[in-house]
Simulated scan of single mutants.
Amino acid sequence: MTTRYGMTVPLGSAPLHAQRRQIEELVDLGYTDVWSAEADGVDGFTPLALASVWAPSLRLGTAIIPAFTRGPATLAQSVAGLSQAAPGRFVLGLGTSSNVIVEGWNGIAFEEPYKRMRDTLRFLRAALAGEKVTEVYDTFSVRGFRLRSLPEGEVPILVAALREGMLNLAGREADGAIVNWLSADDVARVAPIVRAHGADKEIVARIFVAPSEDTDAVRGAARFAIAAYVNVPVYKAFHQWLGRGDRLGACWAAWEAGDREAALAAIPDSVVDELVVHGSPEACRAHIQRYVDNGVTTPALAVLPLAADIDLGRAVADLAPR
C-alpha cells in the first residue's frame, strides 16, 4: 500500500506494561510505525519510549504533542530524550491542539495558535541543533537556553494542519503535515497545499477505523466521536472550509442550543461514512488505500471499538498491510 503503515498506541485500555506482546506483534504483521496521541489518556512520549525497546525496528511518531502545554525548553528536552532512545526513528508531530485541551483542561490561554505553532517550530529547530537560544518570539520568549544533550541526527518535525495557513506552514518550515478527521477525498485538496513547498513532504493521516459490518451500530457510535470534534471551533471551521457546512449545519445549530441528542441525530450517514472507515477488513483496507492514492504517505490507523463484534487484536491483524 505504501512504504509506511502505522498503528496508534497505546493499543486499547490495558495498562502500558501489559502491551509489550501486542507491540512486538505489530512488526510481524507488517506495520512500520507506531503513533501516539496526547489528549486525556497517557502522555504522548511514554508509549513510544516503551515501543522503542520492545520493537526496535518501528518508527515512532507523536500525532500529536500540543505546542501549548509544555514550556519550550521542556519540550526540547523531551524530544531529545526520545530521539536518543531511538536514534533515527523518532518523528515529532506537533500541533496547536484545541481550546478544549489547552484552556479547558490545562488552564493555558489558547491565543494566536498559528503564531504559537510557528514560534515553537522555529525554537525547536534552533534548540535541537545545539544553538544557544535567546529570542523574543511573538508568543513566548526564551533567554539563554542551550540543550546540552542533543539528538543523534536531525529529528523530523511534522505540523498538525487543518486549513491553508497551517498547511502552508507545514510545507514551508516543517518536514510535512499530520492530518486528522478528514475524508479520503479531502486529502486530494489538502495534500497539494503542503507539497507545493516540496514534493518530498510527508503527510501522515490519522485514520479512524471500525472493521465491522454492523453498519447501524458503527454509525450510531461514531456520531458521538464525530460530534465531539466537529463542534470544537477549529474543527468546525475546518469542515466549513472543506464544504460540509450544509450537511453539518443542523448539528452545529442543535449543539449550540444545548440539544446534544438532536446534534448527534443531525449528523448524516454520508458524513459518518466519509470520516470513519468501516465495513469488512477488505473494504476497510480498500478505503485506506484511497487515502494513500490521494496523497497520504503514512496511514496511522486508530481502531475504534464502535460495535460489539470489534476485537482489537483481531482488528489490528485484519487491517495489517497485505
Rank of each mutant, 00 (worst) to 15 (best):
I65R: 02
S52W: 07
L248M: 08
G107W: 09
V42Q: 12
N106A: 10
A302R: 10
V136C: 08
E135Y: 08
V179C: 07
I310S: 10
M7F: 05
D40M: 14
W54R: 07
F145H: 07
D28Q: 05
R223M: 07
R116E: 12
V155H: 04
T297H: 11
L60N: 04
P87D: 09
G176R: 03
H239D: 01
F140M: 03
Y235Q: 10
T215K: 10
A14P: 01
W255P: 00
E152I: 12
A237H: 10
I226Q: 12
L92Y: 05
P66S: 15
A191Y: 03
V218G: 04
R116Y: 11
L248I: 07
P281L: 06
K132T: 15
G295H: 10
V53C: 07
H17Y: 12
R244C: 01
I193N: 03
F145G: 06
V230E: 09
G130F: 02
A196P: 03
L29V: 06
S141I: 00
G198P: 06
L128Y: 02
I207K: 10
F224I: 13
V277S: 04
E261Y: 06
Q19V: 07
P281R: 03
Y137F: 05
V277E: 03
T3P: 02
L48M: 14
A196F: 09
S141C: 02
W181A: 05
G313R: 11
G144A: 08
A18M: 13
S270F: 04
G313H: 09
Q77M: 15
V34Q: 02
G6P: 02
A191V: 15
G12M: 01
H278K: 09
Y5Q: 01
E25K: 10
M1T: 11
L29W: 07
R21Y: 08
L60A: 07
A170V: 03
V232T: 15
A188W: 11
G245R: 00
P113F: 08
T46A: 15
V102S: 05
A39D: 14
E256R: 12
D273S: 04
F45W: 15
V159L: 09
W241M: 05
G81M: 09
E213M: 13
D269G: 01
L304H: 08
E24W: 04
R322T: 11
S83M: 03
R148I: 04
A210V: 08
G258T: 09
L58N: 12
A262K: 05
I207L: 12
R285M: 11
L124I: 10
A177L: 05
V187F: 14
G198E: 07
N99L: 08
A317S: 14
A253R: 14
P151Q: 03
A317R: 13
V159D: 00
A196Y: 08
L264D: 00
G71M: 09
P56Q: 13
F123Q: 04
S78Y: 10
V292G: 08
G130N: 02
R122N: 14
P151C: 07
